[in-house]
Design a protein around this nucleic acid. Structure first.
Lengths: 205, 205
DNA sequence: AATAACATACCGACTGGTCGGTATGATGTC
DNA sequence: GACATCATACCGACCAGTCGGTATGTTATT
């Protein structure tokens, strides 16, 4: 087992992803991160010059995690790129029924707190969000061609729009404390994408 | 004009709205809020038992501010409720071209940081967001009737969806540091609403 | 004179970060 | 294979400063 052998650096990144997602970057102390990771403060500052640097590393890890998770999900087997896009959106919508701590976005949370004060962290969050969003572009473009869809919008802007709606859904979910507002908004997004591709807004059974 | 007579309480709320919006709730210290308000710490804790209580007061004030601002905007003169709805969305989209600090949402920022740790603040943010979003419901329902629009969605869910997209746009704007991603996403929202109401997605000149 | 509205000085807990030190293992030399 | 050398990973006590909050005033209003 690599349980004990896991290096402090990796354990700290995992701890940051978990705790910062729940409490935010500023509200999470270095001591808390060390405790969660089962690591001493000395180890922390051996691997990361500052707390912000751990935040940046966590943002990078987050992108990799997201692209792994959604890149290997079952709906990716669909042959039609539009079905893959829709599968992605429905998968994300269904995640919203679970506990808040399991679907919210680390980097969306962090960038809210850091955009004006910690430029390096802001840049890392930007790279993380865009790096995930842009994985959708190829399928959107392929779907557009396949289904002969035109319109006054770019694949990139639609990819980013999906992320914006999801980020907004997370905020509603956090405010709503388990209500259904987040799911409703994801369904509006799905309805929009279906309409863009000339499908009936509600799937027929 | 209550300029000079402005009591410490009001100045503190105004300071909280301004500074918390830029730096987040946790990153803003009580001393900083006092300095911004031109008020001493004694005055702070005379009016607010804790820092969280000022946050709650700021969330309440924010809702009032938003409803005033958007309730008295020029597009509200339109006779057709759908035009009022569209006017609202275009107005909000156009705000996204200004500086980030002028269009972002205080309560959207605060709820991200507080949902898990400060339940009272979370509840105040919920009331603020919902309290503004629901001002759209009457116009949405009236527009629906007037234009004979049906569909598998409620006015309330669409009102909340607009807020979710805007919140998501703010996150993109913060991450993007002045890029156009936020505006693009607002345009997707407008396109969606037009499609829901059977209008051509791009307005004709 | 009583009360609300402010001001000043201060407190202990906690913050991010430092620093001298150790344990372990790889590398080179003979 | 023995030994010196070096680098990496990690430890935990410690520091100066900041935090939210309190205690004890002083001043304005009624």
């Amino acid at each position: 087992m690599a349980a004990r052998k896991a290096p402090a650096k990796d354990k700290l990144i995992a701890a940051a992803v978990k705790v910062v997602r729940e409490k935010g970057f500023n509200a999470t102390s270095v001591d808390e991160l060390c405790a969660e990771a089962g690591v001493t403060k000395g180890a922390f500052f051996h691997h990361f010059p500052t707390k912000v640097d751990l935040g940046i590393a966590a943002a990078d890890a987050w992108k990799v995690h997201a692209n792994d998770l959604f890149g290997s999900a079952p709906y990716m087997d669909h042959e039609d790129p539009f079905d893959r896009l829709l599968g992605y959106l429905e998968f994300r919508r269904d995640m919203l029924d679970g506990p808040v701590a399991e679907f919210t976005c680390l980097v969306g949370t962090m960038v809210q707190e850091s955009y004006d004060t910690l430029p390096a962290l802001r840049a890392a969050c930007h790279a993380s969000i865009w790096g995930h969003a842009l994985t959708l572009v190829d399928d959107i473009e392929a779907a557009r061609e396949r289904h002969g869809v035109t319109g006054d919008w770019t694949a990139e802007s639609l990819a980013l729009h999906t992320q914006a709606v999801l980020q907004g859904a997370f905020i509603l979910a956090k405010a709503d404390n388990g209500g259904g507002a987040a799911r409703d908004t994801a369904n509006h997004l799905i309805r929009y994408v279906r309409m863009l591709f000339n499908l009936p807004p509600v799937p027929m059974e």
